[in-house]
């Protein structure tokens, strides 16, 4: 199974990539972020419609960039879960039909396995065992990766995902969507200690995350300040909020390192593109003498190269056994 065409449509990015082993020959991402910005968040029906418009040209571009064509591909990989069901179905229907029409095997991939498997891509791949912190708009978890193709969840969010918390904060502060980059831009001018934000740390040493209290604290701060003062102090509010989100992520990562015998950490998911998180994780890992794998930005946010990377460790399903394969929201 040498060359894989991978397809990812679980959320609001339409993605296709061609991989040869751990090397991405092409990695096309057509982001819909601008389309959803006016709604202040991702609208599933809008995302699904856009996926249908983009999926075939994105696949064509990925094949062309790879220097090959469909014939040169040995298997088709596709994200089947978790995600927005209508969005997933565009990718799954497309992948199944391409595979069936060419009698090629199909590989069903879990999106979260994809975020972990982004660490296996060249250049500079990270081999298990390692601890992965995956934080994005849809998920926040600490994963213990002992061998490629599988992981155990050491901790996960009990309410909002980290990226979702940043989105909500950006909305409260009138900063637009997506929230992560908007908060980061605004925070650059602000004082992260101006407002005391709670860092939710359960006393039992647990590794689960919680961001809803933080969001409530910001909502109260905004209410108490009033519209005008909120606008004046927006940079301080953004910086304080960002610092608290990153603080919790890094604190739990530190706890997880304490609890196990890890000598490498990988950071993934869209929030892993955040500069403060990268800096604080770098400090933590340096302090512990642990190797930190920071993925390039294009492999942090959703992409199909990571799906193709995860597909290398999943069993290919031969034609026609995948014809009835369905997508799943969770």
């Amino acid at each position: 199974m040498n060359r894989i065409l991978a397809i990812e449509t679980s959320c609001d990015d339409t993605c296709a990539a061609v991989l040869e082993g751990p090397r991405a020959l092409s990695n096309i991402v057509s982001s819909q972020a601008r389309l959803h910005a006016r709604f202040g968040g991702i609208v599933p029906e809008v995302a699904s419609r856009r996926h249908l418009e983009l999926i075939n040209p994105v696949i064509d571009a990925a094949l062309e960039d790879s220097g090959g064509d469909l014939e040169s591909v040995d298997a088709i990989a596709v994200t089947v879960k978790p995600g927005l069901i209508g969005a997933l179905l565009v990718g799954v229907s497309t992948a199944k039909a391409i595979a069936a029409a060419t009698r090629k095997p199909l590989i069903a991939v879990d999106h979260l396995q994809g975020h972990v498997a982004a660490a296996y891509l060249e250049p500079d791949p990270l081999e298990p065992p390692f601890l992965a912190l995956i934080a994005s708009g849809g998920h926040t978890l600490l994963a213990e990766v002992r061998e490629a193709g599988t992981f155990a969840i050491a901790g996960q969010t009990l309410d909002d995902a980290a990226g979702e918390a940043l989105d909500k904060a950006a909305r409260l502060l009138g900063l637009g969507f997506p929230g992560g980059p908007a908060i980061q831009r605004e925070a650059a001018e602000g004082d992260p200690e101006a407002f005391g934000m709670p860092v939710a740390m359960s006393r039992d040493g647990g590794l689960d995350f919680s961001f809803s209290g933080l969001k409530t604290a910001l909502a109260y701060a905004v209410r108490d300040l009033g519209a005008e003062e909120t606008r004046e102090r927006r940079a301080d509010l953004a910086a304080s909020f960002q610092s608290a989100v990153v603080g919790q992520l890094v604190a739990k990562l530190g706890r997880a390192l304490d609890a196990g015998d890890w000598d490498a950490v990988a950071l993934g998911g869209g929030v892993a593109a955040n500069a403060l998180l990268r800096e604080r994780a770098r400090d933590l890992c340096d302090e512990r003498g642990v190797r930190l794998k920071l993925l390039p930005f294009e492999l942090c946010t959703d992409n199909a190269a990571m799906i193709g990377s995860a597909a290398r460790f999943e069993p290919p399903v031969a034609h026609p056994d995948y014809l009835a394969l369905d997508a799943a929201a969770r």
């Binding site: 249908l52 999926i55 075939n56 696949i59 229907s93 497309t94 199944k96 039909a97 029409a101």
Partner: peptide
């Protein structure tokens, strides 16, 4: 979307 994405992919 299921029908049209299937049709387009088969065609592609």
């Amino acid at each position: 979307r299921i029908a049209i994405s299937t049709a387009r992919a088969l065609s592609q």
